[in-house]
Every structure is written in C-alpha cells, then in structure tokens.
C-alpha cells in the first residue's frame, strides 16, 4: 500500500515537472515571437521615418504629381496608427504599393533621379524594405515554431488549459509585394 502510494507520488511529481517544462518552453517561444514582432515594428518605424524625407526631396520636382505624394503620406499616417496585426498588414501593404507608384513616377523625372539625396534615400529605402521582409520572415518562422509546439501532443492539452492560442502570421496578400519597389537610377 505504502509503496503504491510512493510510486503514485513519484509519478505525480514527474507529471508536474513535465507540465512545468512544457509550460516554460511555450512561454520562452511566446516571448521570442513577441520579440520578433517588436523587431518588425522597429523596421516599420524606420520606414515611416524615412518617408517624410523622401516626400520632402521629391516635393520640389513633383509639382504635378501631388496626388501620388498625398497617397504616400496618407498611407503612412494610416500605417503609423494601426495596432492590430491584421490592420497593420493592410496599412503596410497599402504603403508599399503607394511607394511603388511614387518610384514609378520618379522614373519619369531625370533631374530627380540624379538627385544625390534621392540616391541615398533610395539605398536606405531598399535596405529598409529588405529588413522588413527579413524581420517578417524571422517573425513567421518563430510563429510557425510556436504554433507547431503548442499543437503537438501533449503540449496541446497544456496550452489549452492555460489558454495559449495560436499566433498570427504576418502575411502579404500578393507575392509580388515581396519585391522591393524598384527604381532604376
């Protein structure tokens, strides 16, 4: 009787340890996902900070393209205000497409294309777009690892009882959005 109780006790302790292990594993990965999301935010902020500079440089040359410039500014404002993952995605996608149309317009202005400030900004924007793509890639990898972990048995039981849900992927609606807005200078 006593040995049976002892075995039961040992099993219970082991079960608790396993639960603690799994719980901590999930928490570590959750924080890693949050950190990856913060990384995207850092890069998006970098993009938002660059846009006013870009608009300033282009403003003098693009007198007849007010609409394009306004679209970029509008998209930027929306993007800075969005907080939820879904809203952010939509706003950032809009910003990407407005940037692309801006660069398409820039192509038609040789003076602007030769502007040194614009050349520098172009490199910065190209780099920022790449950083956003890479940060997103890292975030999505982490989310995938997180979601796979909490869906596996027996982790799913523990995740369910502690209310750990799946994390959302940062998706892009059109694969061509992955491309950097290209301008040949």
């Amino acid at each position: 009787m006593l040995t049976g109780l002892a075995i039961l006790l040992v099993l219970a302790v082991m079960a608790v340890l396993v639960v603690i292990g799994i719980y901590n594993g999930i928490i570590a990965l959750r924080n890693s996902v949050d950190n990856a999301w913060a990384q995207i935010d850092v890069q998006l902020k970098r993009r938002h900070d660059l846009i006013p500079n870009l608009v300033n440089v282009a403003k003098g040359y693009l007198v007849h393209e007010k609409e394009t410039l306004e679209n970029v500014i509008k998209a930027r404002t929306q993007a800075t205000q969005a907080t939820a993952v879904k809203d952010k995605q939509a706003a950032e996608n809009m910003l990407t497409s407005s940037l692309r149309s801006l660069f398409a317009v820039v192509e038609q202005y040789p003076d602007l294309k030769a502007n040194q400030n614009l050349l520098k900004l172009h490199e910065e924007i190209t780099s920022t777009e790449n950083r956003i793509a890479f940060a997103r890639q890292f975030y999505n990898d982490e989310v995938m690892r997180h979601n796979t972990l909490i869906q596996k048995f027996p982790n799913n039981v523990i995740a369910g009882s502690f209310n750990f849900g799946n994390k959302e992927l940062f998706e892009i609606d059109d694969p061509s959005h992955k491309e950097v807005p290209e301008v040949k200078l």
Binding site: Q39, K120, N130, A135, F138, E142
Partner: peptide, 20 residues
C-alpha cells in the same frame, strides 16, 4: 562612400533575418 554604406545596410539586413 555609397558602396560601404550599402555593405553596412546589407549586414544589418542579414542580422535582422537572424533575429537581430
């Protein structure tokens, strides 16, 4: 010097891809 600036940017991009 623009090429060096580009190199620095690229290194930072790759660093981002590795989670910083």
């Amino acid at each position: 010097y623009p090429p060096h600036k580009m190199l620095k940017n690229i290194i930072e991009e790759v660093s981002t891809a590795m989670g910083g």
